[in-house]
């Protein structure tokens, strides 16, 4: 066999763009990514068709404020977000579990750009998945929407927000989950923390009938973030808290702040810790 220097190899400096390309290759080249995304998207038509057609029989008796089309069309979000949060956590924790992080960081020894590139790929993936999910969900519900006395009308501000808030919400919540994964560096701990927060901590805060706790609950990540995708009349499909203290965009801002805080801690730890 020959030596490495058969041809002179062109090697260029590491840039953020190149790191993003690299992370994109990494994301695409894992079979598990495609499974997760397929499942996440599939929840949308599944739930949207199921819930819309279940309304067909009762729509005549329901009052119109409970017939908000986008709420039914996007109801797959509750489960899709879990899959995408899981994917976000594992994308970073698997680097540590498998040792891949040593390859990643030797190629990008300044570290933070590598984390940023991975975050960007995760967030854009969540955004795209949410968008596709919403559209597929809409298509799946379309045949029965009329019979259920509902519409999806993107010229209505609320409908627009409910529909396109879904990809935005998913982008923010996966960024938060990614940050938690980057802090904990363990798939089990990361997934348990994110699910624990969504399924145990947040409901606990909001269901305990004590005002201060419920106040705090309003500011927890999914409760706050889901304000963006809560119907003024029907509330949200995903959060236990029905508080309306925060406006839709304030709530989303609070979720972004949670994500930013988690990512900041992750960044500081990444700089400090041995890989």
């Amino acid at each position: 066999m020959t030596t490495a220097a058969v041809t002179r190899t062109t090697v260029q400096p590491v840039t953020f763009r190149r790191l993003v390309t690299s992370e994109h290759v990494k994301m695409r080249s894992l079979r598990s990514t495609w499974w997760a995304l397929a499942v996440a998207v599939a929840f949308f038509p599944l739930f949207s068709a199921m819930r819309t057609s279940s309304m067909v029989a009762v729509a005549a008796d329901a009052s119109p404020e409970y017939l908000v089309g986008p709420v039914y069309v996007t109801s797959g979000l509750a489960l899709a977000q879990l899959v995408l949060c899981g994917l976000a956590v594992v994308t970073i924790t698997a680097e540590y579990r498998t040792g891949q992080v040593r390859s990643t960081l030797t190629a990008a020894p300044t570290r933070l750009p590598a984390l940023g590139a991975k975050l960007l790929v995760v967030v854009v993936t969540a955004l795209a998945t949410g968008l596709v999910g919403v559209l597929v969900g809409w298509a799946a519900a379309a045949p029965t929407l009329g019979a259920a006395r509902m519409t999806v009308d993107l010229t209505q501000a609320e409908h627009l927000r409910l529909m396109f808030g879904v990809p935005l919400y998913l982008a923010a919540i996966t960024a938060f989950a990614f940050g938690v994964g980057a802090i904990l560096r363990s798939s089990a701990a990361g997934i348990a923390s994110v699910l624990g927060l969504v399924f145990v901590v947040e409901p606990a805060f909001s269901y305990v009938p004590w005002a201060p706790l419920q106040q705090i609950a309003t500011y927890l990540p999914t409760a706050a973030g889901s304000r963006l995708i809560s119907s003024d009349t029907m509330g949200s499909v995903i959060a236990g808290s029905q508080s309306t203290t925060l406006s839709a965009w304030q709530g989303y801002g609070v979720l972004l702040a949670w994500a930013a805080a988690a990512l900041l801690v992750a960044a500081v730890l990444l700089r400090r810790r041995d890989a």
Partner: peptide
């Protein structure tokens, strides 16, 4: 230092892309 789910070629391509 390799993710076991990735092919050898994909692993190297990701590294090369940086």
């Amino acid at each position: 230092a390799v993710h076991p789910g990735r092919s050898a070629r994909a692993h190297l391509r990701a590294l090369a892309a940086t």
